[in-house]
Nucleic acid binder design. Structure first.
Length: 600
DNA sequence: GCCACCCCAAAGAGGCTTAT
DNA sequence: ATAAGCCTCTTTGGGGTGGC
């Protein structure tokens, strides 16, 4: 059937009958013609965000002092009792106004409490604070980024993505008040940051929470624990690899998709058993951070962290002002606002300080009023709507540039999706994305095309993710395929989509796409490509390959591609496929490999 | 030995400036 | 007018250094 589909060109979704789609596990969406409009429409102005609505309904807040005003007051006449009053007031305000939010802090509260105790030990240093953190990671041996660990998910930490702006303001003001009180008592303020060190990063089971992925928990193979009777059991390591879990999860998704409707009490018990088993045994390919904290203070490291601490207070001041005024700013805006030595000599200093603020407050940057410049794009068999009152935009009827993915995470989370595709294709480069959309690949195959134009930004990853994005809206079993250059950087980009990134802290580990598979370019697609289309691997490429091998331990299909690159000592771009059959050659290869399921 | 910090190089497309 | 070069913007990973 696969080839018959390929031969029927152009092939519209309406041409498929429902049983045919069901057989392949695809979700049948209404034909595009039945949607409100087949044409591209200009989205209506977004409805006020929830926090804006609440802000309009709330009585005016008590005027709060500017962060830098508070800090500036340290040296002129602010007494210890003033500071205590300030601290008590903000504490009670947070309790009164944000009771619900405070109640949701959960493990974060515990950590903050532990953090305060750590601070009271004054200058205990990172080492002792590691001990003060949870014991979840004690004794854990992070052999490589892809290895499983036997960790308790309850000890994992995530940013609080549910806070509104007033709650974030209360957190900032509470932190500043505590810092001022500490200074008034002759102590230096310390920053308790969620650690992004290797010892605090874990590949864990994705509990399926958040998105509409009903199959997330279903179908995990009962026989495949460490003592499983699977054919791999005899030679399997003590713990299955992350890849095994990802594969099982995928199989489970497919299994769970069909039977979830008739699930009774037994089914629920089975699911709970599976959930517990997964909790006990580890990972499905999503990075998470543990609750270990890193302490930054002005005096640690003989003052080496002083700039970092000062940068955090500067960013807090900017964020506080943004939130009070109800505005947003891009990271670059903030850089230009703060630009200049010694604190902010470069854009990376701003980025690092923002990550520290995220780790300190445990809220995403979207809740801080910080957005990114839009970069990603989407095209093909999906319609988008920005909020309940917006108009549907048919991404299959747009030009070759597709539809821009908003850079603001809150805007991504507002999107509604109507998916009529059977595949999602993530493309590394915009030029290839445009080539495929101009050639109407989505009319030949029911497919959604997504690109982040290089290294994926958070917004594009969120757009894809199973929590708020395309994966949640699409069928759980929909294949998500990656098309990147055949070089170590391309593999890095795929790995970032698939596993997330610990260096970005609480946000970087949230928007993983564990089911992503490597469609191309792969070594097997390069037959007939002339030698001139290849380039020699550089020293940096070799170093990247080493790092990738550690991250991808156990992922044999991807490792084989890395081996192939290293053995040949060569790399090439996607465009190299043009040398065999031109644009149509690339097109044909992709269609054939997708339909023949030649991806790993 | 582990960790954090800092610097560097790189990915990608688009925009701007300068040279031919 | 066109091409080349540089900068923007966000994110990534590697490696060196020094503190704990």
């Amino acid at each position: 059937m696969a080839y018959r589909l390929a031969a029927k060109r152009p092939q519209l979704m309406e041409d498929f009958d429902e049983p045919e789609l069901a057989q392949l596990g695809a979700t049948y969406a209404p034909p595009l013609a039945a949607w409100p409009s087949r044409r591209a429409t200009v989205p209506a102005p977004p409805a006020p965000a929830p926090w804006q609505q609440r802000r309009q309904q709330q009585p005016p807040r008590r005027p709060v002092p500017d962060v830098m005003e508070i800090l500036g007051g340290l040296g002129d006449g602010l007494t210890a009792s003033d500071c205590e009053d300030e601290a008590v007031h903000h504490g009670s305000e947070a309790d009164d106004e944000e009771g619900a939010a405070s109640g949701e802090l959960g493990e974060g509260e515990d950590d903050e409490e532990a953090g305060r105790k750590g601070s009271q030990r004054s200058g205990s240093g990172a080492g002792s604070d590691r001990e003060a953190g949870s014991g979840a990671c004690s004794g854990s041996e992070e052999e490589d980024g892809g290895a499983l660990e036997d960790v308790d998910l309850d000890e994992m930490v995530e940013a609080d993505f549910g806070l509104d702006r007033s709650s974030v303001l209360a957190r900032i003001e509470g932190f500043i008040s505590d810092a001022v009180a500490a200074v008034a008592h002759g102590q230096l303020p310390e920053l308790q940051l969620v650690s992004t060190a290797a010892g605090n990063t874990h590949m864990v089971a994705d509990g399926g929470g958040g998105g509409g992925d009903g199959g997330g928990d279903a179908g995990f193979d009962e026989d495949l624990g460490p003592a499983g009777s699977d054919s791999r059991g005899a030679a399997a390591p003590a713990q299955p690899s992350a890849v095994d879990y990802m594969r099982l999860e995928d199989e489970g998704d497919e299994d769970g998709g069909g039977g979830s409707g008739e699930e009774g009490a037994d089914g629920r018990q089975q699911r709970e058993r599976r959930r517990r088993r997964r909790r006990a045994h580890g990972a499905s390919g999503r990075l998470r951070l543990g609750s270990l904290t890193q302490v930054k203070s002005i005096t640690h490291g003989q003052g080496r962290q002083a700039h970092g601490v000062a940068r955090v207070f500067q960013i807090l001041a900017v964020v506080h002002e943004l939130l009070r005024s109800g505005r947003q700013a891009t990271q670059r805006d903030i850089y230009y606002k703060l630009l200049g030595p010694p604190l902010f000599p470069s854009a990376t200093a701003v980025s690092g300080a923002i990550q520290d603020v995220v780790a300190l407050l445990r809220v995403p940057r979207s809740a801080l009023g910080i957005a990114c410049s839009p970069r990603g794009a989407v095209a093909g068999r999906v319609a988008l709507r920005d909020g309940p009152g917006g108009a549907w935009v048919d991404c299959g009827a747009l030009g070759m540039a597709g539809h821009a993915i908003p850079g603001e995470l809150a805007a991504v989370e507002r999107l509604s999706f109507r998916v009529s595709a059977r595949y999602i294709l993530v493309v590394e480069k915009d030029c290839i994305f445009q080539r495929l959309t101009e050639d109407r690949l989505h009319e030949r195959l029911p497919i959604v095309l997504v690109t982040a134009k290089g290294q994926p930004d958070l917004a594009t990853r969120a757009f894809l993710s199973r929590r708020e994005g395309l994966m949640a809206a699409a069928a759980p079993s929909l294949p998500i395929l990656g098309l990147v250059d055949w070089n170590p950087s391309g593999a890095c980009i795929l790995a970032t989509y698939k596993f997330g990134n610990a260096r970005m802290g609480l946000e970087g580990t949230r928007y993983a796409v564990p089911r992503l598979q490597w469609l191309g370019v792969r070594g097997g697609m390069l037959d007939g490509v002339p030698r001139s289309a290849f380039h020699a691997l550089t020293g940096r490429d070799t170093a990247l390959l080493g790092g990738l091998r550690r991250r991808l331990a156990g992922h044999t299909g991807w490792l084989a591609e890395l081996d192939d690159m290293e053995e040949r000592g060569l790399k090439c771009d996607i465009e190299a496929l043009y040398t065999v059959g031109g644009f149509e050659g690339l097109h044909r290869q992709l269609v054939r490999r997708i339909l023949q399921q030649q991806y790993v």
